[in-house]
Simulated assay, not measured.
Amino acid sequence: MARAAEAGDDAGGLTVHASCVAQAGRAVLIRGAAGSGKSGLALRLIALGAELVADDRTRVWRAGDQVMADAPDTIRGRIEARGIGLLRLPAAGPRPLALVVDLDGSATERLPPLRETRIVGAALPLVHGSGHAHFPAAIALYLRYGVLE
């Protein structure tokens, strides 16, 4: 049910191969293999009102009960748009993670079971990627309002 922890997880923090955006002060960590669509999903969420936290590499660490996410300084405010190039956007700065999207998994169930994953020792809700057109909107609404049921 839960995905194995990232290699190197510990309370001291780490840098993960993932993109991250935030909306309403809550962030989603978008992870997956190279070419899986992390930046593409992040761009769609930004177009829906999210802020860029980090693209392709995200620093995560514990701050009390929360897992925080931010961009490494070398890539802050930059996101790749395939076929266009690097875009410069305002950087959101550190934001608490509320959700993890795993693009390597595929959501095939209409109402999938609740899943979680551990990041730097903390449990976070996990959803698998979906090719449905509404997927970015559902993630944006989750960040704004939601609790998965």
Rank of each mutant, 00 (worst) to 15 (best):
L41W: 02
L41E: 04
L41S: 10
A42H: 03
L43M: 08
L43N: 04
L43Y: 05
L45Q: 08
I46S: 03
I46L: 12
I46W: 04
I46M: 08
A47D: 12
A47E: 13
L48N: 06
L48G: 05
G49R: 02
G49M: 07
A50M: 03
E51K: 09
E51Q: 12
E51D: 11
L52W: 03
L52N: 02
L52Q: 07
L52I: 02
A54D: 03
A54V: 00
R57F: 10
R57E: 07
R57L: 15
R57H: 13
V60Q: 11
R62M: 07
R62Q: 15
R62L: 05
R62H: 07
R62V: 06
A63N: 12
A63F: 08
G64H: 11
D65F: 10
V67N: 02
M68Q: 09
M68N: 08
M68V: 07
A69K: 07
A69M: 00
D70Y: 04
D70E: 09
D70F: 02
A71L: 08
P72A: 01
P72Q: 08
D73K: 12
T74E: 14
T74W: 13
I75V: 10
R76L: 01
G77M: 05
G77C: 09
G77V: 04
G77R: 05
R78Y: 11
I79S: 10
I79W: 06
I79E: 00
E80T: 01
E80K: 06
A81V: 03
A81R: 13
R82K: 15
G83L: 06
I84Q: 13
G85I: 05
G85Q: 07
G85T: 07
L86E: 15
L87N: 06
L87I: 09
L87T: 00
L87Q: 09
R88A: 14
R88K: 15
R88G: 14
P90W: 12
P90L: 13
A91S: 14
A91C: 15
A91V: 08
G93Q: 07
G93W: 09
P94C: 03
P94N: 01
R95Q: 14
R95N: 00
R95E: 03
R95A: 14
P96I: 00
L97F: 02
L97A: 00
A98S: 15
L99N: 01
L99P: 13
V100H: 08
V100F: 12
V101N: 06
D102H: 14
D102G: 14
L103Y: 06
L103H: 06
D104W: 10
S106C: 14
A107F: 01
A107R: 13
T108L: 15
T108H: 14
T108V: 15
E109S: 13
E109C: 07
E109T: 09
R110V: 11
L111E: 09
L111F: 13
P112Y: 04
P112V: 03
P112F: 09
P112G: 01
P112K: 00
P112A: 00
P113Y: 03
E116R: 09
T117S: 02
T117V: 15
I119Q: 01
